[in-house]
Design a protein around this nucleic acid. Sequence first.
DNA 1: GTTCTAGAAC
DNA 2: GTTCTAGAAC
Length: 694
Amino acid sequence: MEMETEVSGEKQIVVLLIGPPGSGKSTFCDSVMKSSHRPWSRICQDIINNGKAGNKAQCLKMATESLKQGKSVFIDRCNLDREQRSEFIKLQLLGGGPHVQVHAVVLELSAQVCISRSVKRSGHEGNLQGGRAAAVVNKMLRSKELPKLTEGFSRILFCYNDADVENAVKTYTTLAPMDTLPSGSFGLKNPDTRSTQPGIMNFFKKVTAVPASSSIEATTPKAHENTEDVLPVSPSKLGSVVPTTLAFPSISTADFQFDIDKASDIIVETAEEFLPKLGSARLVLVDLSHGSKILSLVKAKASLKNIDSARFFTFVGDITKLHSQGGLRCNVIANAANWRLKPGGGGVNASIFKAAGPDLEAATRARANTLVPGKAVVVPLPSTCPLHNAQGITHVIHVLGPNMNPNRPDCLNNDYTKGCKILREAYTSLFEGFLSTVEDQSKLPKRNNQATASDSERNKKYKGTQDMAIASNMKSGTVDDARDGGKKRSKGWSSWALALHVIAMHPEKHENVVLESSDDIVVINDQYPKARKHVLVVARQENVDGLEDVGRENIKLVEEMHNVGMKWVKRFQDEDASLIFRLGYHSVPSMRQLHLHVISQDFESDHLKNKKHWNSFTTSFFRDSVDVLEEVKSQGRANVESEAVLKGELRCNRCRSAHPTISKLKSHIRSCSSHFPHHLLQTSRLLARPGTSN
DNA sequence: GTTCTAGAAC
DNA sequence: GTTCTAGAAC
């Protein structure tokens, strides 16, 4: 049976418009239908019932009928959440059959625009008066879920402004009846973590270049165009210059040796939970170091959860100099305190007490003497305090987290069930404390007797457990750290991870695989090449197993690896000038012994089988050799990306469109001829012969 | 890193 | 039934 002959070969489509009232759905449909050569039917829930609003069932029924008549269909209703969309996606089965594709066109215009349009419109009909329209739009946006290909769409197109909408109209208007559009997800802003981390990105651009007076706008991402910031529509606060901001260090992960992966989950989850309660206030996780693992983990996990990066982000800098050095205005900072609430120790606690001077100690003493793990105490700073007048900090919130370090009080001996509970409690207390300062500022003059300070009875209890903990430590001896998932470090590497190491130590025993060797490096073909050309330049030096082990002392080595890699690129391109390459390292390698990937960008290989493979070469997890070299020279080490990004979406390495499965992705990249993303075309990250299309 | 496999998802 | 994912073993 030839299916194709049943219906004249026309490719029908169902297009779901997705957007709140006033986003321009009906206008979109009208514009396309006005000059399209394809038969369309617009299913509009607002008028389906003889010009009056109808329901979903009526829309479905009419859509099915239109499809049977051979028309393509616009579903003109809000379709904001997944559930609302699901039945329309099934139309491809009910109505037409396999030749019907379902598309989404997402109208992500700013809430203000939608509100003002729907106010104007409803003004005419006398339906929704101004304030009510705003409330309706806001309410709807709160339940919004962006569509994903996995829901069953074959194509998704995101529009953020009038120009995007105009392009989309053109795309559908010019689509002839026999044509189809490429599948995939297009135009989604902010797809990778790079663009969601204003703090870090600004810092990398050299903070010194940011004027100290820079307002918050300068350090906030632009990506929040997309409506999450509609809540503070109450215009009362919109005028204020800087949203209230809490800067906080990661609790318990430094001296207290708490597992950073677990900690990052807890940070992201509690932040996500609190953001809605905080109005327009912001939460900023701060760390002193560039290569901070906790920052990159949190950043990646927050990005995966689509948390508004304008209101929760990470920042590299000194927490006591955020304004003067980092250009970031914060009015409240958290301190990773000790249980005695005393200066000293090291790290954040020492530097905050030092920067604040005796004022902080006195103000702290007035509120509490000690602190129980999991609790926080809010301390207002007098205006005489240097942190207050130089950095604009009005409150310090001391927090005590759980401790996993046997040399510190109250060690939990790796009891992470308890540890996680306490850490969660600690962040909750911290954010509640911050919330109380936010409320104070907007209402009452002062007064926070929040239940965060400790009472004397709990202190006694705490001292008891602490003594016991110390005693039990003496018996139990050393801590066996189960960090790193047991894969490496503590005990050593699994046997399969040693293959490169073995070759690097004795290249002469592996002549059959070694392509080239010197005192410093060996070059081999990757045993499971992920592209047409894929070789590894392996360092021979022992104990440099990954990017994280590379320091200034290895600059010569990294340079040589780069040069050898470049030589192989030249050799391959002499054979085939159309090959395009990148040279780079995996942020967290699976195999021991530092190795540079020299890989062509076709990714034409049966060995490329899963998400991890793909993302390890095409996301920020892949650190270009040129950048690594520059970072090691300038800051003594290379930045590394968290493994969390490996679980992210599958995106084309050229056009960045997203695809639901590896096989769909692979069929897309076989034919995608878009230019490579802009950042790859800079500083020779991408190596192509002149005249090649890149 | 790969391979194998169970079972979830389609 | 087939495809895809995630986890365990190596």
